[in-house]
Amino acid sequence: MKPGSVAVVGAAETTRMGKIPELSVIGLHADAALNALADAGLKPCDIDGVATAGENPTAIAHYLGITPKWVDGTAVGGCSFMLHVRHAAAAIASGLCTTC
């Protein structure tokens, strides 16, 4: 894989911070994911790989309307999400999921 051939194209948090009583745990995941999709100009059907820690990545994918080819549920503490980025880059490079 050439350096720079995989990039983060969208990133977001939940719409509001602090106490958010109107959303469940899975709802918070979906809210942040929808915001990241909007940031990237993508729709759920454009996505074929999902990584998350704590919640089940397949459950998150189905909740978002995604049929995943690749999932990663690595949960090793606060650095899980750094590993997700690394795993995602490796998955794209090896063809386990796509970017188009």
Binding site: G27, A30, L34, A38, K43, P44, C45, Y63, L64, G65
Partner: peptide, 11 residues
């Protein structure tokens, strides 16, 4: 139920 459309992502 969920507060967005799983087909197109609209809220």
């Amino acid at each position: 139920p969920r507060p967005f459309c799983p087909a197109c992502g609209s809220r």
